[in-house]
Structure formats: C-alpha cells, structure tokens
Design a protein around this nucleic acid. Structure first.
Length: 566
RNA sequence: UGGGGUGUCGCCAAGCGGUAAGGCACGGGACUUUGACUCCCGCAUUCGCAGGUUCGAUUCCUGCCACCCCAGCCA
C-alpha cells in the first residue's frame, strides 16, 4: 500500500514504484559530512531521507560522507548520531562510512583509466582553473588528456604509493571540456592529500572527490533514491556518468530539493563553526545555537521540530520560512505536554495588609489545565508576595486588565486582591504595593465565583526560590544577514555576518533576578513547564541547567540562570 | 550575454485544461482563575509579465522579466 504522496519527491518515488523501477524496498541514505554538529537545516535532510523511507516502509542508511579528512573529525560523527536519534530517526539500513569504500573507489578509478575515461593531469590547480574556461567560454583540453592508458595507470598507482606531494597531480574524468555544464569539464576524481583520516588512518594519501565517491556509494548500497539539495542539480549528469562508466547495474536516482532557511537564523556551518572556534559560545550545543543540540537545551522537542519541517514543506523553490512557524510548532507541542509553573522574572513586592503576619495557607494548583491526570501541587500563600513588575501600572491605559491603584485582580489559584497604595522610593520608583485580600474569594470556595478582569501569577516571598534569569536572542536581528549560505559572498554580507558574530555572545543578554516556585526547585531533568502568560520553561536535558523558550526563555543553573528570548 | 533551477496571499505551500487546498502571520468575535490556550469567522475574481492555442489556461505554446545555483585538487 503506497502512501498518498505529500510532495514532489514522494510523487517521483510512487511513479518509480508503479513503473517497476523499484524491485525491492525504497532505500535512501543520510549522508552528513562529519565536519560540524547538525543544525535545524539538517533536520530537513533527515526528514526528507529517513522520513520518506519510513513512509514507504523502506530503509535508510546513515553514511558519513568522509572523503575530505582535512575538515572532518570523530567528535562530529558521535554528535551527529546522537542528534539523529534524538530527533526520533534511525538508520534501519545500517551505519556506513564513505571511507569504507575507498578500496572500491580506487579499483573503479583504475577501471575508468583502463576504459580511457580518466587520466592523470599534471596541471597545477591554477592552470586547471584557467583551462576550465568560463561560464560563457568553453575550456581547453589539458595537455595530459591523451596520455596513454599505461602511463595513466602507472602515475595513478604512484599517486597512491605516495610518490608525489599533495596537490601535484589529480585524476580527472575525461568527459567534455566544452560542455556548457562546467561540472562536466573533466572534473577531478581523486586528489593527493597527505593527511591522516579519522577512520582509515594513514592508509591513504589520495582521496576521492564527492562527485566520484557519492554515486559509487549510493550504487553499492543499492540506494534507490538519493535526495540532496538544489545545488547538486548541475552535478546530476556527472552522478549518472559515474554510475554508468563504473558499470553498476543498479542505478540510484538523485532528486534535489530546496534546503531550509528560517528568518533571522544563520544556517551556515561555516559561521556556526566560527562562533565555536572563537569562543563566542560555549560550544556547538550552546543554547543560543540553531544546532539541534542547542535547540534541545532550549527546550525544543523533537516532535515540534519534525512538525515544523513537515509544515514548512518540501519543494524546489528557495524560500525563507518565517521563524514564527517554528515558534508556533513548539508552543503547540509544549502546550499539550508541559506542566505549568509560576516564575517571577521582575519581582515587585506586594503586602497584604489584612492578612495575619505569620499565617500561611497551602493553595492547590493543577499542573495542567486540560490534563487532570498530571495532578496538582501546592504553593504556600502568605502576607508578602512577589508579582511581576509588568503586572502593575500606576497610570494604566484604557484596557489594562492587571493591577493598578484601586483595581482588583485575581491571584491565580488564590484570592482576589485590591491595590490600595503604591509605595515609592525617593526616585519615584514603585517599590511595594499595599493591598487587601477579599477573604471570601479563595479559589474553590463559593465566593470564588466573583469575577475580576485580570489574573496574575505570584510567588510567596517567604518560600520563593531565588533564580537569576538571562534573556537574550540567539538569532540574527538583521534579515539580510540571515539568508546567505556559506558560499563565496559579497563583502557586504560577509562583514554583516562578522558584525553579527561579534555581537553574538554578549550584548543581547539581559540578566534578571527573579524567583521560581518552591515545588519546582528540584524538578527532574527533562521536565517542562509552562509559565507566565506565554512562555514555556523546561529543564535542560543535557546539564543541570533549566531553561525555557518563547517570549520569555529562561534557564536556571543552581541559582544562576541563562535564558533565550525569541 | 553558457548551462541548470525557481517564480501561486505578508511567509511557506497545494494545484498536473474545467473555473485558486491547507498552515503560519494578520483582523474580528466567543470563552477564560493569567489579555495565554481553545473555539468560531474573515483574509488571492487571481496565479512574474505579454501574447497565442482552446468553449474554457495557474495548468499547453511562444517571447520577455526577476531571483537562485555552477568556473574547489569542498561537500
């Protein structure tokens, strides 16, 4: 039973299956290069490859694309595997490394040489560039293009044996130097790199290029559909050329789609890496990072991220998805599952003048408004309380529902109070509110029926747990900066990004000294709460810190907190 | 000015010749012990532009225009 195609990729797959081109199961692959941690953009790739295989009841391999040892590292393969699992995906087709196929790639390279489809070129990098021609002018053949097969073979074997220094020669495909598609102008297949590899150690000093290795890997693993981003569309003829010249009976199909862009978000490994390397963030999993690990620490759930990718859609047009959609997805998910709690970020003292000095009462509060099974907790209530500073205004505008002199408000799950007087210091700042409680309005009692327009969250002064909050932006503020890729770019965009990086780690942080409910002081790791009017709050699952997302995003570590404001 | 790709509501995105889905955002209303949440209702006579074919075109043809990608021994 085929699923109803939900995008053009699935339509292609359904067509292929109906046409009998997929004898077995749909088989895809996830080909991350282990040169950084996964970010939200990679989630789309995972969604498209692993997710599509899943929907078709097929298989997905995880294959690290590790053909360039100069920028890859074991640290990244470990982190990537953990993040894929966290997102809720798996590699039911198996775990592979591109480097596992180095022997086969080498053999196939010799095969191409023997067929007269590849040659060793002694031109320097600069010369190759010159010979390649331009977008409008055809290239010219390398003087080494028609080397005899035996000489090519000998040279290639000596390249492998380490007889030449790095960069001295390359193996090139012999295709067409006049092709309008520059990727077909005798692209490099193998280069000399005297660099140890994190998987193969010192075994090799020549490494295959992506364009040569990837189709071979896909063919060997019998991948049926190989989904990648749009910039590889021009490489597809080369991909097909390699599969054909190598003589594979199995022909994988490459399908391209547009990569994910989100407003105000830098989706460039190059810049994320520079933040890490320059110490501007604590690491790839810094809560401010748009990496999956960073987002996890901020409280984003894998369900929310997957839902976001799903709703953003998969198509070929490049687009920038509004970050508001991401925020909506997390709110929706957390709103469903997060228990509620109270926190006061900017405290303002309230004294209930008609409440006995040492009297306290335990107020019951539900942990979730729509899920009674999540139980209740109690919060002590007393004469002195903290409320949010923003919840009081001395001169309220017309439709202000919260507290003001002479006004009444309900304290969530407690009593209705009236503000009698605002006490100020010499500078005129309000330092304390004198209020009276309507003792007949305790939550749950008959008198609680009385309605007032506003309801506030609060904390008992004697039992509130001090907490320091930090609010800051993790995303770009400048739209123009956020949309570039990591390719060669204009000086303007580059300098804008540099500005962003230099501003990244400090300025937008606001430190607040507030309080949190005593009942939540020792919450378990991974617990998530909703607090305030529209914020969510959660335990950082990777450390002992707590934090939250949305309008008020907060974390606590002991009595020291970090937070993110979106 | 070579080649490839894309242009449908503020942002995504369906649509595959029969008279413009859906989501986010936004606006209005209901509900509410947090102005949140939830719930209703509204939101493209129009599909980059111009011609053409057709009874009929967002869908087919032609020509323009705009944007993105390609000249790494990166992936």
């Amino acid at each position: 039973m085929l699923p109803e195609p939900k995008n053009f990729i699935e339509e292609f797959i359904v067509e292929d299956i109906r046409a009998g081109k997929v004898p077995g199961k749909v088989h895809t692959r996830l080909p991350p290069e282990p040169n950084g941690w996964l970010h939200i953009g990679h989630a789309k790739n995972i969604f498209v490859n692993a997710g599509t295989a899943e929907r078709f009841g097929g298989l997905c391999n995880l294959r690290f694309d590790d053909t360039n040892p100069t920028k890859e590292d074991q640290e990244f393969v470990d982190a990537i595997m953990a993040d894929i699992h966290w997102l809720g995906y798996d590699w039911n087709g198996g775990l592979f490394f591109g480097s596992m196929y180095f022997d086969q790639c080498y053999e196939l390279a010799e095969k191409l040489i023997q067929q007269g489809d590849a040659y060793v070129c002694d031109l320097s990098q600069q010369q190759i560039k010159e010979y390649r021609g331009t977008l409008t002018a055809p290239g010219t053949d390398s003087p080494f293009r028609n080397r005899p097969v035996e000489e090519n073979l000998d040279l290639f074997r000596r390249m492998r044996a380490g007889e030449f220094p790095g960069g001295a020669r390359v193996l090139r495909a012999k295709i067409d130097m006049a092709s309008p598609n520059i990727n077909m102008r005798d692209p490099a297949l193998y280069r000399i790199l005297h660099v140890p590899h994190h998987q193969t150690g010192d075994k090799w000093c020549i490494y295959p290029m992506y364009d040569f290795a990837h189709p071979i890997q896909d063919a060997i693993e019998e991948i049926t559909h190989s989904m990648c981003s749009m910039e590889y569309e021009d490489h597809r003829p080369l991909y097909d050329w390699v599969v054909e010249k190598c003589g594979f009976a199995h022909r994988p199909r490459q399908i391209e789609y547009a990569r994910l862009n989100i407003t105000r978000t830098v989706m460039s490994k190059r810049y994320l890496r520079s933040l890490v390397e320059n110490g501007l963030v604590s690491g790839w999993d810094d809560p401010r990072m748009p990496t999956l690990a960073g987002m996890r620490r901020r409280g984003y759930t894998p369900e929310a991220i997957r839902d976001f990718i799903d709703r953003a859609g998969v198509a070929k047009a490049n687009s920038v998805v509004d970050a508001a959609l991401l925020e909506h997805c997390v709110r929706e998910d957390l709103g469903r599952k997060a228990t509620r709690t109270m926190a006061v970020l900017r405290p303002l003292k309230v004294v209930l003048t008609n409440w006995p000095k040492d009297k306290t009462e335990a107020m019951d509060m539900e942990n979730h408004p729509d899920r009674p099974e999540l139980g209740t907790r109690t919060v002590p209530f007393g004469r002195e309380l903290w409320i949010e500073r923003d919840d009081f205004m001395e001169d309220p505008p017309k439709k202000f529902f919260r507290l003001f002199p002479g006004g009444e408000v309900r304290l969530k799950s407690a009593y209705i109070i009236r503000c009698d007087e605002a006490i100020k210091d010499e500078s005129g700042e309000v330092t304390e509110l004198r209020c009276t409680v309507d003792l007949d309005t305790r939550s749950g009692s008959a008198g609680a029926e009385r309605k007032v327009k506003g309801t506030l969250h609060w904390l008992p002064k004697h039992a509130a747990v001090p907490a320091e909050f930090r609010l800051y932006d993790y995303m770009l503020k400048d739209e123009s900066v956020a949309e570039g890729g990591d390719e060669i770019e204009s000086e303007d965009a580059a300098s804008a990004k540099r500005d962003y990086i230099s501003e990244f780690n400090h300025d937008s942080i606001e430190v607040l000294k507030g309080f949190i409910e005593p009942s939540r002081a020792d919450a378990k790791l991974g617990d998530t709460f909703q607090f305030l009017r529209q914020g969510y709050y959660c335990k950082d699952v990777d450390s002992s810190a707590e934090m939250a997302v949305f309008n008020r995003t907060v974390s606590l570590k002991d009595s020291f907190a970090k937070a993110v404001r979106v």
